[in-house]
Design a protein around this nucleic acid. Structure first.
Lengths: 138, 138
DNA sequence: TATTATATTTGTAATCAGTACAAGTTAATA
DNA sequence: TATTAACTTGTACTGATTACAAATATAATA
């Protein structure tokens, strides 16, 4: 995927592919760490010294409205963003801090939710200890 | 469950059962709506006009440290609290705003998470449309 | 019970994420 | 090029949360 492809994708959704938006989008695509607005800001500032914090929020909002980015509800105090808008769950390891994605199969989802409830968005978040960290403390 | 039982429960966990803590705890037990700090504050103010916002945060933190209360990660901008510390999921209906709890069976949980990951805390949150609201728009 | 030490509550001030808004800039169109 | 609309920027503001110090209440001890 080149920057051109990304620009095209924004245009298809009615978004002007400005350098700032592309920088935010590409940061989210290449860093699957679900960063906060401020983390994105610090990173893109290196390329665009005039980048404004407000532009981070504006860009992220535009990308979310276009369905390319989503908020992940994994923190009760700060918004974290994800460049993968498809539904999926997250696990965070308390020891190494790593964030793992996983799939949420349709049938499991259906088995979980109250009967008749139609799910539109998922936020599934587990905290625990990953395999590697368990091994290293055995 | 009487207030005395609740007081005893706090004491067992090493918490002094002050009137303020009991008011916060009992509000959370009797209102399963996962309120914010401010919602709790408004409610308890009626009984204790001198109640301070800071005391809400202090009490909730003490109760959380004691394992009696937890934060539910259903909102990236504000903390919501739950008097049920047991693991369970939440569904919010976009139309009527209702928040439904549901169980998360062990075997489903195991099937979901990456192999070897040991889950310590769950935050499962679905947004969608509940059965009643679907019916009323049919 | 009186005294002392400790824990808790309170109110104010500070912090920090996010938003509103207006002015400046860029890009698109005629 | 002139005009218009979209976007970015910086500043000011809001609102949730935390820090802190003084006041109060509780528990422990004599």
């Amino acid at each position: 995927m080149t920057t051109n492809d990304h620009a095209k994708r924004l245009q298809e959704r009615g978004l002007r592919p400005t350098p700032q938006r592309l920088a935010v989008y590409e940061y989210l695509l290449s860093h699957r760490t679900h960063p906060t607005a401020d983390t994105i800001y610090e990173a893109v500032l290196a390329q665009y010294p005039s980048f404004s914090r407000t532009t981070i929020y504006n860009s992220v909002k535009a990308l979310m409205d276009a369905g390319l980015v989503r908020v992940v509800t994994i923190d009760p105090l700060e918004q974290h963003f994800d460049g993968n808008p498809a539904d999926h769950g997250h696990c965070r390891c308390e020891r190494c801090g790593q964030l793992l994605d996983f799939e949420m199969p349709e049938d499991l989802l259906a088995a979980l939710v109250p009967e008749g409830f139609s799910v539109q968005q998922q936020d599934i978040f587990f905290t625990g200890v990953c395999k590697a960290c368990q091994a290293s403390f055995a």
